Amino acid sequence: MAVSEPDAASGTRPGPRHVAIIMDGNGRWAQARGRPRLFGHHAGAKRVREIVECCPNLGVKYLTIFAFSTENWKRTQVEVAGLMSLFRRYISKEMNALAAQNVRVRFIGDRVRLDEKLIALMDKLEAKTEGNDGTHLTIALNYGGRDEVARATRRLAQDVAAGKLDPDKVDQETLPKYLDTHVLPDPDLVVRTSGEARISNFLLWQSAYAEYEFIDTLWPDFTGEELGRLCASYGKRDRRFGAVKT
C-alpha cells in the first residue's frame, strides 16, 4: 500500500481519492419537521446528486454510499416498501443525468431479496454507464460487511474445492478478489453523518486503514462544502500505515 508524499509547500497530502459515506439521519431530519420518515429519505436521495456533482472538483474519483443495509429489513414494512419504491424512482429519474455526467455506477450487496423490477433497473443503470470514466459511484444496496465476507469466503471455498485455487497460497491479497468491491480501491475516508459513532457493518475489510469522520450533520443537510472541508482535513492527517518516520 503506497503512502502519498505530503506537498512540500503546504505540508498536506492529497485529498482522499475514495470517499465512502454512511448516509444517516434521514428519519430524524423528517421527524424534526413533523413529517414521516419517508419524507426524510426522499430529501436524502436528492442530496446524493449534489454530492456526486461536487466530487470531481474535490479530486474524489470514487464515491461509495450506504443506501440500504442487510439489517434494514428489520424496519417496518411501510418504511421498507417506501424505500424500495424510492430506489426504483431514483434510478429511473437519475439514469440519464448520471450517464451524461460521465458517472460510472455500480451496485454492491446481495440482490437475492430485491424485487425483479429494481434489479432490472440496477442492471440497466450499470450497463448504461459502464463506459464512463468520470466519478465512480458505488451504491451499497442490501449490503452488509459480514454478509459480503461470508459470500466471498463461500466463493473462495468453492474454487478451492474445484481445484482452481491452492489453499496454501491463500493470503490477505486473495480474499479481496472475491469481494463485491474487487474492482475498486479501498476507501481513504469514511464519513458517517447524524452524530452516531459506529460503522454499522459497512466495508469492514476494505476500511481497515481508512480515516473516519463522525459528524453531527444529518444527511439531508450535508453539503458539498462540508465534504470539501472533510477532504481538506484528511489531507492534513499523518498516514503511516504502521510505519514510522525516519
Rank of each mutant, 00 (worst) to 15 (best):
D133C: 14
K74V: 03
D110K: 11
A67T: 10
Y178P: 01
S200W: 04
I21C: 08
K164D: 05
G40Y: 01
N201G: 09
L137C: 08
F66M: 05
D110G: 02
K236E: 15
V170T: 11
Q172H: 08
L165A: 05
K46V: 09
K74G: 02
L189A: 03
E5F: 03
R37V: 06
E5P: 01
S200M: 13
C231N: 11
E148L: 10
F39I: 00
W205F: 13
F222G: 02
P176E: 02
A150W: 15
K61P: 04
A8Q: 14
A152K: 08
R239M: 01
L38R: 12
Y143M: 15
H136V: 12
D221A: 11
E225L: 05
A161F: 02
Q158I: 14
K74D: 06
E50A: 09
T12A: 11
I108Y: 01
H41K: 14
G228K: 08
Y90K: 11
E173K: 13
P56H: 07
A197L: 00
K46A: 15
S194I: 09
L86K: 08
R37I: 05
G44Q: 09
V244Y: 10
K164C: 09
V48P: 07
I51N: 09
I199C: 12
S200H: 07
L156M: 15
A32E: 12
L204F: 00
V170L: 08
T138D: 00
F241Y: 14
A43R: 14
E213K: 04
I21Q: 10
L156Y: 11
G27C: 08
F107H: 10
W219M: 04
E94Y: 02
R49K: 12
R28I: 00
D115L: 11
R155W: 01
A8G: 07
H136S: 03
R35W: 13
F39P: 01
D221F: 00
R111D: 08
I119L: 11
R154A: 13
D180P: 12
F68E: 08
V78P: 00
S233E: 12
L137Y: 05
V149Q: 13
P167L: 04
N72P: 04
G59W: 01
V170S: 07
K236D: 12
F202L: 14
